[in-house]
């Protein structure tokens, strides 16, 4: 998700030692009525996206659209250059011989799709040269799991949420301000 942090927001961060514990904790914390901002893990955890209630990714649709753009671009490019602008006869074939351009169409489809997906990745993860990403705990890049809870978006108070986190297995609970 693209992070918007115009106003200062305060987060409560539960640190977990084990992927199974954090997965179980997600359900418990949610059942206790707490809205979870996000869970950070050094590796993908099976079933975590389902437990967090994330909607199904629409990345496939994006990929298809980028690919289609590439296909159409390649069709337009080959058709314009070889048929409309400067018709050429190569090897005795018609100036627009479709099979010859399939490799170009294929390559541009793949290129547009790949570049588009890189762009999507950067945008959807809030990365970029000037964007400062939210880093809740550096140890999530190593061996810890962090569950971030946006206090501004929760009705329960800080102390109560801290207790819920501890009860569901958090090794420590920190406050993080951005």
């Amino acid at each position: 998700m693209a992070e918007s942090h115009g106003s200062a927001s305060k987060f409560l961060v539960g640190i977990f030692d084990d992927d199974d514990v954090v997965l179980k904790a997600v359900k418990e914390v949610k059942d206790a009525g707490v809205r979870i901002h996000e869970v950070y893990s050094p590796f993908p955890i099976h079933g975590l996206d389902v437990a967090l209630g994330h909607p199904r990714t629409r990345i496939g649709i994006a990929a298809f659209m980028f690919g289609l753009t590439g296909t159409l671009t390649a069709l337009a490019l080959t058709m314009y250059t070889e048929k409309l602008d400067w018709p050429m006869v190569v090897g005795g074939k018609d100036s627009y011989s479709f099979p010859v351009y399939i490799p170009i169409i294929f390559e541009l489809t793949v290129l547009f799709c790949a570049l588009g997906m890189v762009g999507t990745f950067i945008v959807s993860n809030g990365l970029g040269p000037t964007v400062k990403p939210l880093m809740f705990d550096l140890r999530t890049t190593d061996n810890k799991f962090a569950m971030a809870i946006d206090l501004g978006k929760n009705k329960l108070d800080e102390e109560k949420i801290g207790q819920i986190l501890k009860a569901s297995g958090a090794a420590e609970v920190n406050v993080k301000q951005f």
Binding site: G91, G92, K93, P99, V100, I102, P103
Partner: peptide, 12 residues
């Protein structure tokens, strides 16, 4: 399939 067809088509 296409790789086979393409080379033959192109080389003619």
């Amino acid at each position: 399939w296409f790789a086979q067809f393409m080379l033959i088509y192109y080389a003619n």
